[in-house]
Amino acid sequence: MSETADAHDAPTSTGIDHKKLIMWLFLASDCMFFGTLISTHLLYRKLYPSGFTDAEGHQRFIQNLFNIELTSFSTFILLMSSFLMALAVSAMHKGEIKSFRRNVLGVIFFGLIFLGCQVFEFTHFYHQGLTIQNSVLGSTFYVLTGTHGTHVAIGVLWLILMYFYSFTGKLRGHMGALDVEVAGLYWHFVDIVWIIIFTAVYLVEYLGPNGIWGTGLPAAIK
């Protein structure tokens, strides 16, 4: 079927495929989407730099809550998944379907590890007393990182469907490579967004002797 479509698809004015162009447009829009969410989080961090109060009424610092080693690990895993995604796209361009399948399985696996870490992190934070309801910090943190997690989950679902679709033999040729490349664009974007979130939400909390918001790091961190 895609062959029929191939034969008649007129060349585009710019030489860029429609599918690739529309994905870039979507990503431009998604930049504004995450930009708004990240701004919301940072605005409230500046306004309420001192963390949150848990169920027992104890004041808690965000650095006590974060497990920066775990998040660094999941960030590394997500970065590596982007590497595998690039290999998968390259394999499709060369028509090496088996190599594509291996690499895309790796992407899916790494994506699931990242999601697993996020589920663990959310559960852990919840038990530590940070909920979506008890503070503004909880609201912004869970909604921002949760929205990113949803993006990852959609990407994983997309790649799983693509993996199985490749066994029908229809994922091939220029259109097949294009479909994989478009999925790759999405995946890389979601990765880049995580790098920004990891920096803006996690790393900056450890900047300088007093943290970026000037509230002082708890002794355990120093």
Binding site: S29, I132, Q133, V136, V143
Partner: peptide
Amino acid sequence: PAITVALIELMFDRAFGANF
């Protein structure tokens, strides 16, 4: 996207007790 996020935040406030 700005209104999309604003609506999501408002929905979380109303439906799930968030504090945006």
